[in-house]
Amino acid sequence: MEAFPAPERTGLNSAYWDGLAEGRLMFQRCLACGHAWLPARAECPECLRAEWGWEEASGQGRLVSWVVYHVAFHDWFKARVPYNVATVELAEGPRLLSNIVGDAALRIDMPVVLAIEREEGVALARFRAG
C-alpha cells in the first residue's frame, strides 16, 4: 500500500499548510496590484512583482466543477472510490482543488463553505454545500 500522498512543504507554501493546521485558509495577495492567487508562487502572476502577503480567506466560495473517480490511480484512494475532486473558486478570487463533503447533490456554481478536515495529520481545505 502506497503511503498517503502528503503535500510537499516548501519555504514558499509552509504558511498555507500552517494556516490550515490552525483552521485558517490562506491565500496570497499582491501588495503592488492587489491580485489574489493560489497555489503559492514567488511572483504575482498578474504584475510579476515579488511583493505580496498572506491573507485569510472568508471560507465562502462556489463550485466551479467537479469529477467523480470510479477508478483509483493511487493505492491510498482504492477504498474510497467513488470519490469527488472539485474546483472551488473562493469569494476572494483564488481557485483550488478540493473535495466536497456531505450528501448534498452537486451542481455547478453552487455556494460552498470551508470545512477543514485532517487526514494522516495533514489539515486539508475541503468544502461542503453552503
Partner: peptide, 20 residues
C-alpha cells in the same frame, strides 16, 4: 500537492471540463 485530495492523471482534467 493536489494528490492529497485524490487528484491524479489526465482523465480527471478532461472530466472536470466536461462536467462544467
Amino acid at each position: 500537492d493536489d494528490a492529497a485530495y485524490g487528484w491524479f492523471g489526465v482523465h480527471a482534467g478532461y472530466a472536470m471540463i466536461a462536467q462544467r
